[in-house]
Amino acid sequence: MKNSIRPQHPDITAEIWDTIDEIISKWKNTPGSVIPVLRECQEVVRYLPSELLMYISRGMGLPLSQVFGVATFYSFFSLTPKGRHNIKVCTGTACYVKGIKETINRIYGKYNLKEGGTTEDRRFSMEGVRCLGACGLAPVMVVNKDIYGAVSADKVVQILEKYE
């Protein structure tokens, strides 16, 4: 499928638009496939800018309200750019009892980074996630795909400094 009008966007190159077209044509005829389409598009662009949502809506033949509704309902999808390194802090009960709050405060103190935010230099973005199911390691933090257990406030900065 070639979608005639490709909007201009600084974060999406022509090659990425090609990949997006492939994703849309792969799922177009599967009912209920908005979530996998958004997931795969977010994997290539790293977030879902509004131009992309409009493009998906046209390509899938679905109302923009439905695409936008789904994209804003699920916490997995982000409509704002992410940092180079994505920090996930677990805010599940076990991590909470074991002191993730202090760890989050320390990250805020050091990088001026809040849950759901991105640092100005786009080095880090941080999101609070509901239980990662690794309560044995509480408090847990995931940076990109690396899992860190027993992340106390004292240890966290040392870990994050490894990510440039």
Binding site: G32, P36, V70, F73, Y74
Partner: peptide
């Protein structure tokens, strides 16, 4: 695969989610 919504553990919400809607 879900996309991060606690309420989708509720049976009717889970089914809406598989249908590609808000859960």
């Amino acid at each position: 695969q879900g996309a991060g919504a606690f309420v989708c553990g509720e049976e009717t919400a889970l089914m809406r989610s598989i249908e590609g809607k808000r859960g």
